[in-house]
């Protein structure tokens, strides 16, 4: 999709047709922006204005109180800590998990394309298939293994889980990328006496920036947005952001503070949204590669 030159226009319409096309596209844009708009405007409204007023109207009285509430005061679980500690939990989980899975994926992709050996196809097929498994199939044994390893309910435990189930994707990215890299260069370097790691660090890695970006974005988005593993394997002090947000929205007793919920939802969405805005092209590339192209 990136940089594709536009086709000849097949629908050779007159002005009216083109206006209709633009209107339809505009309406779709409204549909996609609507929930974001709803979250934004209602996160800066006092609660009575949401209950008594129009949900898609801009606020009459602006207030940033819901944001403060969501960030540092709202009651989540037993404590009134706001989402802040959970946001930090997510960061501490995401950063190592993304780094480790990307590094391993790069090395795997390198081996699977440039140092092929008998049976490597099976290894790759196993990694590839692991991308699709429904995680329900690993929940029960994973809970036990984390317990045995002493990692139950800890952030390192969650990092391990996310690394394991991200490996298939990162390996796929790097394998497909390195497959297009001229093998002659590798052979030439070998003849010059360069070893396995030297070739990787001196020849392949310097030209890997685009695929590293794709892999990091993909992993970051998936791990940050994960809910199932967070809900299954976290404990009081390792709960990630998505799980905390869900607790805030769905288990709040008494008055439903919609404005705080919306502010919290935006806080949970912000990191991935920022990554998306900064790197839309790479984000799409990751999506497409994740849609499996062998």
């Amino acid at each position: 999709m990136s940089g594709g030159t536009s086709q000849d226009v097949a629908i050779r319409g007159n002005t009216v047709t083109r206006i209709i096309i633009h209107v339809v596209l505009f309406l779709f844009a409204v549909y996609y922006l609507l929930p974001l708009w709803v979250m934004l405007v209602n996160s800066v409204k006092p609660l009575d204005e949401i209950r008594g007023g129009n949900m898609i109207a801009t606020p009459q009285h602006w207030t940033f109180e819901p944001w403060l509430q969501a960030w540092s005061q709202a009651q989540i679980g037993v404590q009134a800590t706001g989402l802040k500690p959970y946001f930090l939990n997510s960061i501490m989980m995401v950063v190592p998990a993304v780094a480790i899975s990307t590094i391993l994926g790069a090395l795997n992709g390198y081996v699977l394309t440039k140092w092929r050996f008998k049976g490597d196809g099976i290894v790759f097929a196993m990694l590839l298939l692991s991308c699709f498994i429904p995680f329900q199939i690993v929940l029960i044994p994973m809970a036990r293994v984390l317990g045995v390893l002493g990692l139950a309910g800890t952030i390192p435990g969650l990092v391990l889980v996310h690394v394991v189930y991200g490996l298939g994707f990162t390996t796929l990215f790097f394998r497909n990328y390195y497959a297009a890299f001229p093998t002659e260069l590798i052979r030439a370097a070998q003849i010059d006496g360069a070893g396995f790691f030297r070739i990787f660090f001196r020849i392949l890695l310097p030209s890997s920036a685009p695929i590293i970006v794709v892999s990091v974005i993909w992993q970051f988005t998936n791990i940050w947005n994960d809910f199932l593993f967070g809900a299954s394997f976290s404990d009081v002090d390792s709960v990630p952001m998505t799980v905390a947000l869900n607790n805030l929205v769905n288990s709040s007793t008494g008055v439903k503070e919609y404005n705080v919920h919306f502010a919290g939802a935006i806080l949970a969405a912000l990191p991935t949204l920022i990554v998306y805005v900064l790197s839309g092209r790479y984000f799409v590339r990751g999506l497409m590669a994740g849609a499996v192209k062998g």
């Binding site: 919609y258 919920h261 949204l273």
Partner: peptide, 18 residues
Amino acid sequence: LYPMALSFIVTGTAWKWF
């Protein structure tokens, strides 16, 4: 495309109240 970047928990919250 931006909804793809969001967590289903965020999407769910927005649509639930909308």
